[in-house]
Nucleic acid binder design. Structure first.
Lengths: 179, 179
DNA sequence: AAGCCCATGTAACTGGTTACATGATTCT
DNA sequence: AGAATCATGTAACCAGTTACATGGGCTT
């Protein structure tokens, strides 16, 4: 049950309500890591409260519940982080498309690989800009946090996509069929 | 519905039965791309047959059904490959753990990042060996297929994990708290 | 007062996993 | 003959998505 641990991780970082968690999910985790909508998050928060992993630490003006992690929740998150990985199978539609590229004929393959390389390069450039902003907003010598680590990962991921697509194009150009 | 397109892609590559498809899923797609068990695959094959995307092209000795892709199936696969990406949200437990690393205290973070770097390096080395085998089994000058492309992607992916984890460790060593 | 964002929830449905069930062939 | 592998299926359950529903507070 990764949703539970994702919520624990976000709440350890910052105490917040279900609405904020929904947006945080969308903004930071949804791209590469995990995804969940509010209709899944609210019931899970209730269950986690019942299980003693989190608790309501404050109530906002319009009846919102601000959650925080209990000691038991911290223990559970740590236990999960150290547990052997690979339990939940990975699902990534983009990677699936990559793996199925060879089901296309050569002209189609070229067009798609070129498109993938282009969009990945754009995304990498965009994230590089975001990273510069983070760096600028962080006083020199200060340690980076969560956001910087995640952004660095994302940048490298998009570069991988771009470079792999270019490598495929290079392989294709070496083929006898190439004109 | 990515399952459907994954099956189409595998069947375009090789006509095969549900049992083979289940193993292929496990071996080639399960790591980074997509995952499905036989209990999901068999009913989907029936539905795809009803929808005219695939058809039974042969029957094996013990009553197995060998499926092949119809022209309509090929069209559907191509349409999907060219359709705008990002419809299905990505889910990757490993990446989720990466993103939640900063919820740990510094000593824990170091231990985990070191472990991640080590196991990723082992996986990258293993895949590099697999690639050499593929290269050796392919006559010189011959084009590479599906397996070579996917393996190259996997290698780069594990290297990304390793390098990112090492980068995080480097960032941590620069911290004032570092001993 | 109207419209937007904040904030929480439930219901119906679809996709995916685990468990149950069965039988044929091949290998030892 | 017994065990392993091939081969297909269904049922019950859990996770995740889409749609429906409601109301408070803030801005213009």
């Amino acid at each position: 049950m990764s949703l539970r641990h994702a919520l624990l991780g976000l709440l350890v970082d910052t105490e917040q309500n279900g609405y904020d968690l929904t947006r945080r999910f969308e903004q930071t985790l949804s791209g590469h890591a995990w995804s969940a909508g509010h209709s899944q998050i609210y019931p899970e928060l209730k269950r986690m409260t019942a299980d003693g992993l989190i608790e309501v630490v404050d109530e906002g003006s319009r009846g919102s519940k601000v959650y925080g992690v209990t000691p038991a929740g911290r223990d559970e998150l740590r236990r999960w982080m150290f547990s052997p990985p690979g339990e939940a199978p990975a699902r990534n539609e983009f990677v699936l498309r990559l793996f199925l590229l060879s089901s296309l004929d050569l002209p189609d393959l070229r067009v798609l690989a070129e498109r993938m390389a282009r969009t990945s390069d754009e995304q990498a450039t965009e994230l590089a800009g975001t990273i510069k902003e983070i760096e600028a907003a962080t006083p020199a010598g200060q340690p980076h946090g969560y956001a910087r680590f995640a952004a660095e990962f994302g940048r490298r991921w998009f570069e991988l996509q771009r470079d792999w697509a270019r490598w495929v194009l290079g392989e294709l150009d070496d083929r006898p069929e190439a004109d």
